[in-house]
């Protein structure tokens, strides 16, 4: 101690110089020095233990202090969630309504020029081979043979027999009918009929070999038919195969209507075949509008 007391000035100057030198030498260092390393090696576990101990205590303290705060927060969040749920329901309803309205608008605009009668399916064919069914409206409701049956999704078939209070409908997945059809995108013509060897599907025959149809194309009734009005969706192309003669193409068409869960249908009562001959131009215009 005497030494320091006696040479106070010298010690201070030396310490200052040491500090300056240390600062200058370590100003740009990248790696920790040996001393720092050693110190760090020893101190780090202790720090870790300390910090976790502090955290533990803090945690416990918070746990006991925070319950009342949490309760308030919980209540606030709950009410917020409630509001969000109400809002979500409202939005879902709006969405549903929107979809329904869009669909209605779509049907209306597509088939607005026809008058329709709604009917329920009351019986199906007794065997397992054919796909015909009976509806509960007949000639007393203004139906007749060859009238076209459809749903909002698309074409179902046509009336084959019409009784007084019933009508028998053959569906398009039955192979007794061939419908003149065309692809909506490319206007390629073909004939759609049911395919018994691929139950529930239709096949589209006699497509021109150069036709540029692809899978997923919408197939609609063409304006060549005397029975089926133009522009009704039949289905969507699922697979295209070339004929063995390589002159025509064949396509598998998946019907737009779900025939397994069909219970109500619409019948177009407008006598289409006469209209067609009389006003060919207007029909053509309508069909282009539909497309």
């Amino acid at each position: 101690m005497n030494f320091f007391e006696k040479n106070r000035k010298l010690v201070i100057i030396l310490a200052t110089v040491f500090c300056l030198a240390a600062a200058l030498f370590t100003f740009n260092k990248v790696n920790p020095t040996f001393i720092e390393n050693t110190f760090g090696f020893i101190i780090t576990p202790i720090q870790k233990f300390n910090i976790s101990a502090v955290a533990w205590f803090k945690d416990k303290a918070d746990y006991f202090n925070g319950i009342s705060g949490l309760q308030e927060e919980n209540a606030a969040l709950k009410s917020e969630l409630e509001e969000a749920k109400v809002e979500l329901n409202r939005l879902e309803m709006v969405e549903q309504e929107n979809a329904n309205l869009t669909e209605l608008l779509d049907i209306r605009s597509r088939y607005s020029q026809y008058t329709m009668v709604a009917a329920n399916i009351i019986a199906k064919d007794t065997g397992n081979w054919y796909d015909t069914f009976t509806i509960d409206k007949g000639s007393k409701d203004g139906l007749a043979r060859d009238m076209v049956v459809l749903t909002g999704d698309g074409l179902v078939g046509r009336i084959k027999q019409c009784g007084y209070n019933y009508a028998m409908v053959t569906s398009i997945i039955d192979d007794t009918d061939a419908i003149s059809a065309k692809s909506l995108r490319t206007d390629d013509l073909g004939y759609v009929s049911g395919d018994l060897s691929n139950k529930g599907m239709c096949k589209m025959d006699y497509i021109d070999n150069t036709a540029e149809i692809t899978e997923g194309d919408e197939v609609i009734t063409s304006n060549l038919s005397e029975i089926f009005p133009p522009g009704i969706t039949i289905g969507y192309i699922q697979e295209i195969t070339s004929d063995s003669s390589a002159l025509t193409k064949q396509a598998t068409v998946k019907p737009a209507v779900d025939f397994k869960h069909l219970d109500s249908v619409m019948v177009i009562t407008t006598d289409f075949s006469h209209d067609y001959v009389e006003s060919e131009e207007t029909t053509a215009q309508q069909s282009t509008q539909n497309n």
Partner: peptide, 22 residues
């Protein structure tokens, strides 16, 4: 048999096939 087959049996059809009561 006919009435059952054309109406109710549609509900118990398995694999798209219904029995033929007649």
């Amino acid at each position: 048999g006919y009435v059952l087959q054309s109406t109710l049996l549609e509900l118990i059809a398995i694999l798209d096939i219904k029995p033929n009561l007649i």
